[in-house]
Design a protein around this nucleic acid. Structure first.
Lengths: 149, 149
DNA sequence: CTAGTTGCAAATCATTTGCACTTGC
DNA sequence: GCAAGTGCAAATGATTTGCAACTAG
C-alpha cells in the first residue's frame, strides 16, 4: 500500500481512496485487460463507493502520467493495463477474446524504418493481430476462416 | 456508372441512389480516408437527399461484402476507404491528421510468424503508426516529442 | 407485388462534463 | 483552508435502431 502511495506521489497525484483501489486492482491482475466498466463493477462488488466518472478520470490521468496504457481494440471501448517495462503488442482471439501479448524486435525495427522513410517522427503505434486461438471451442471456427494476407 | 451497378449486383445489393453516390464518392477520392460524417456532408453539399443513418448502414454493408475497409484510429470515430488490391497499413500524423499508406512485407511475414508461434489462425490485423510528419507546421512540434520505444 | 431500402426521430453506449460537496496535505 | 478530487446527474458524440413510407427487380 505504501508502494502505491509512492507511485502516486511521484507523478504528482494526491493519494486518494479511488486511485489506490484502482491501482491495486490493475496491479493484482497484470495479465488482464480491463475496461472502465469492468473496473467500476469490480470496485462496486468489493464494496467501494466510486462513480464511473471517477474511474474514467483516474484512468485517463494514469495514462497521461504513464502508469497505465490504453488500448482501442476493434470494439468501441477501451481496455487498460499496467504499463510494462518492455513494450509489447497484442494478439486477440476473435472468438473467446483471449489476449496474448508478444514482443517482436524485428517488427519494431521495421516500423521505425518505415516512419523515417516517410519523414515521420514516431510518437507511438498500435499493432493488434486478430485471429482464432487454439482452444478447442475456438478451433472449430478456424476452418471456415481464411488466413489474412 | 454501370461499373458501379455491376459491383453492387455482384455482391447482392440493390442498386440504389444512396449506394451509387457513396460508392462514386469513395471511388473519386481514393487517397482519402473519410468518416461517415464526411461522406454525409459531402452528399448533402452536392444536393443529395440522404440520411446519416443510411450512410452508416451502407458503409457497414460495403464493409461486410468487402468493397471497403473500416479503420478505427485513436480518435473515437471510424474512417473508410475503398479496399485496395494489395494490403497496406497506415502512418498517421498526430498534428495534421495526414495519412500515409505503406506496405512492408517483412512486417507482414513477422506477424504471420508470431500468430503461428502462439497457435493462432490470423483473421486480420491492424497496424497504425502515429507520429509527426515533415510539414513545417507539424515539424515544430516534433522536437518536444520523444521517439516511441 | 414485396422484400430490400430509406429518412427521420428516438434510442444506445461509451465516455465526458458541470457542479456542489469532500478530502488530502 | 483550499486546491484537488469525487459522486451524481445531465450532456456528448458517434453509431444504431424502430418504423412507416418508398423503390428496385
Amino acid at each position: 500500500m505504501s508502494m502505491t502511495n509512492q507511485e502516486l506521489r511521484k507523478v504528482g497525484l494526491k493519494v486518494t481512496l479511488p486511485r489506490i483501489k484502482i491501482l491495486e486492482l490493475l496491479d493484482r491482475c497484470p495479465e488482464q485487460h480491463l475496461s472502465a466498466e469492468d473496473i467500476y463493477k469490480q470496485l462496486l462488488e468489493q464494496g467501494e463507493d466510486v462513480g464511473l466518472a471517477t474511474v474514467y478520470r483516474v484512468l485517463t490521468q494514469f495514462e497521461q502520467v504513464g502508469i497505465i496504457e490504453r488500448h482501442h481494440f476493434e470494439n468501441n471501448y477501451s481496455v487498460f493495463e499496467m504499463r510494462k517495462e518492455l513494450h509489447h503488442d497484442h494478439l486477440v482471439c476473435v472468438k473467446c477474446a483471449r489476449v496474448v501479448e508478444f514482443t517482436n524486435p524485428r517488427i519494431e525495427q521495421e516500423q521505425h524504418d518505415v516512419a523515417v522513410e516517410h519523414g515521420f517522427t514516431l510518437t507511438g503505434h498500435s499493432l493488434y493481430l486478430y485471429g482464432v486461438c487454439s482452444l478447442p471451442a475456438c478451433r472449430a471456427a478456424a476452418d471456415i476462416v481464411k488466413t489474412g494476407d
